[in-house]
Simulated assay, not measured.
Amino acid sequence: MSKFQWIDNAATERLLEDIRKANRCEFDASALAAAPLLEHAKIIRGYCYALSGVVSGHPRLEDDKEIVTSQLFWMDEELGVCRSMNRWYRLVRSNIKGH
């Protein structure tokens, strides 16, 4: 029987450390500055919470592409940032819409 692992241990540790720092308001300014921008963000619910929106500055996706993020773990609408399973996103604050 194979062992299922959603994400590797290193990715899990990065996610947890980012959430710990965010909860203490200790953001890595350079990481946030390099984070993709997500416009017209909308919370969506499927098997988990995620965001959909139009992305720019993503390291692997083209600009102005509509995407759905990986699972959403942390978000502060007033600061305009969120942490998905894979990365930080900067949010256009006025465009967050509830589910």
Results as ranks from 00 to 15, higher is better:
18 D>S: 12
48 C>L: 02
83 R>C: 04
96 I>P: 05
49 Y>F: 14
70 S>E: 10
13 E>C: 12
61 L>R: 14
29 A>L: 12
61 L>H: 12
28 D>Q: 09
38 L>S: 01
81 V>P: 00
59 P>T: 05
69 T>N: 08
14 R>T: 11
62 E>T: 14
2 S>D: 09
4 F>P: 00
15 L>Q: 07
65 K>Y: 05
48 C>Q: 08
90 R>G: 02
48 C>R: 11
90 R>Q: 12
7 I>F: 08
39 E>P: 00
49 Y>Q: 07
83 R>H: 06
25 C>K: 15
59 P>Y: 06
86 N>P: 00
25 C>R: 15
63 D>W: 08
62 E>Y: 06
56 S>G: 05
91 L>G: 04
17 E>G: 07
80 G>N: 10
58 H>D: 15
52 S>D: 09
66 E>Y: 07
45 R>N: 07
30 S>T: 15
32 L>V: 06
22 A>N: 01
62 E>A: 13
74 W>S: 01
48 C>K: 05
46 G>M: 04
66 E>S: 13
89 Y>G: 08
71 Q>M: 13
46 G>I: 03
87 R>G: 03
2 S>Q: 09
36 P>D: 09
47 Y>H: 11
21 K>Q: 15
25 C>E: 12
85 M>G: 06
90 R>A: 05
88 W>A: 09
25 C>P: 00
31 A>D: 07
93 R>M: 04
75 M>V: 13
14 R>D: 14
38 L>A: 01
49 Y>V: 10
86 N>T: 14
11 A>I: 02
92 V>A: 07
75 M>D: 01
91 L>H: 02
12 T>N: 10
45 R>V: 10
99 H>K: 05
14 R>W: 04
7 I>Q: 11
66 E>R: 15
43 I>P: 00
11 A>C: 04
68 V>W: 03
79 L>Q: 12
26 E>K: 14
83 R>F: 03
34 A>C: 12
32 L>E: 00
8 D>Q: 12
55 V>Y: 02
87 R>E: 06
47 Y>I: 04
19 I>K: 07
58 H>N: 13
85 M>L: 15
12 T>Q: 13
83 R>A: 03
24 R>D: 09
25 C>H: 13
30 S>I: 11
57 G>F: 04
65 K>P: 01
41 A>E: 05
4 F>Y: 14
99 H>G: 01
30 S>V: 13
78 E>P: 02
29 A>S: 15
83 R>L: 08
34 A>G: 11
51 L>F: 10
75 M>Y: 11
41 A>Y: 02
71 Q>S: 13
74 W>K: 03
82 C>L: 03
58 H>I: 12
13 E>K: 15
76 D>E: 03
8 D>R: 12
82 C>K: 01
33 A>S: 11
89 Y>K: 08
41 A>R: 06
51 L>S: 06
44 I>G: 00
3 K>D: 10
40 H>V: 08
20 R>A: 15
71 Q>C: 06
1 M>T: 12
26 E>C: 10
7 I>C: 07
46 G>R: 09
15 L>M: 13
39 E>T: 11
82 C>M: 03
78 E>W: 04
6 W>L: 14
47 Y>M: 06
56 S>P: 03
67 I>H: 04
41 A>T: 08
72 L>W: 02
6 W>Y: 14
71 Q>A: 15
8 D>G: 07
97 K>C: 08
98 G>S: 05
97 K>N: 08
82 C>Q: 02
99 H>E: 03
52 S>W: 00
85 M>H: 05
